[in-house]
Simulated assay, not measured.
Amino acid sequence: MRHSERFLVVYSGVLTVALAVVLLTGARDTRTATFDEIDVQRINLREPDGTLRMVVAGRDRFPGGIVKGREYPFERGVAGMIFYNDEGTETGGLVFRGKVGEDGRPVTSGHLSFDPYHRDQALGLSMQQVRGGYESGLTVNDVGDTPIEELLQAMERIRALPEAERAAAQQAFADNAQPLVPRLFVGRTRDGIAALQLRDGSGKTRLQFRVEEDGAARIDFLDADGNVQRTLGADGSEAGGG
């Protein structure tokens, strides 16, 4: 091989390697970008195989219920983010909304929750403001045995019914499904009391530790109808229920 031909072979080889380096480096660099500000209506976070793991969205682009990648549309009326497990099923989220209602008073809520596998909210941290008052606190729930997919499918079937039949169908499903039952609440109640409430399997408060705004503290024992049966004051005094 002549010297000029050998030079061309080496030269083309160097160019090929250089081009490959540029292309590979450029491809890698395009995966990372820095922005000072982004305006977006929705962001979907996915694994490399396409599994959805988180959605951040405004109200109009907010997802319905998603189980193993299938979405069951329904209107939530909130913005925020939803979390999904390794199978692409909803497992909690952070949502919020707020505006002035038709009566001229604010209606505001914020809610962070976490779900067991294929169930609804087992743990929630929330604030709700309606009718001039607000309540905020931590709630622990019994979630029952009804899979969340069954609840979403029932909602889908009921929405497809004629309007005259929906109320009866909703009641029939509610009678058979196991509802979400709050078992513990700790926070501020709507009437301004700092409280720890322990509830029975029906969601009825049976034991309540409370501190009034003026500092008065007491322990209430309640029956299944919500009537106080016994009260212990901070000074050890005891009073019967009314």
Rank of each mutant, 00 (worst) to 15 (best):
D39I: 09
V40G: 02
R42W: 02
R42H: 00
R42Y: 09
R42G: 05
I43D: 02
I43W: 04
I43P: 06
L45T: 13
R46L: 12
R46E: 13
E47C: 00
E47K: 07
E47G: 00
E47I: 00
P48A: 12
D49G: 07
D49F: 08
G50K: 03
L52C: 04
R53T: 11
R53L: 07
M54H: 00
V55L: 00
V55E: 08
V55N: 00
V56R: 04
A57G: 10
A57F: 13
A57M: 10
G58W: 11
G58V: 06
D60M: 06
R61T: 15
R61K: 14
R61G: 00
F62I: 09
F62Q: 11
G65L: 13
G65I: 09
I66N: 12
I66D: 13
I66V: 15
V67P: 06
K68F: 04
K68C: 02
R70F: 13
R70Q: 14
R70Y: 14
E71L: 06
E71S: 04
E71C: 07
Y72P: 05
Y72L: 03
Y72W: 12
P73H: 10
F74M: 06
E75H: 15
E75L: 13
E75F: 11
E75Y: 11
G77N: 08
G77P: 13
G77A: 03
V78D: 15
G80V: 12
G80C: 05
G80K: 01
M81A: 11
F83Y: 14
Y84D: 04
Y84K: 02
N85A: 00
N85L: 03
D86P: 01
E87W: 03
G88P: 10
T89S: 15
T89P: 08
E90V: 13
T91M: 03
T91C: 14
T91I: 05
G92H: 14
G92C: 05
G93S: 02
L94T: 09
F96G: 11
R97H: 08
R97C: 00
G98S: 09
G98P: 06
K99Y: 10
G101M: 05
G101I: 04
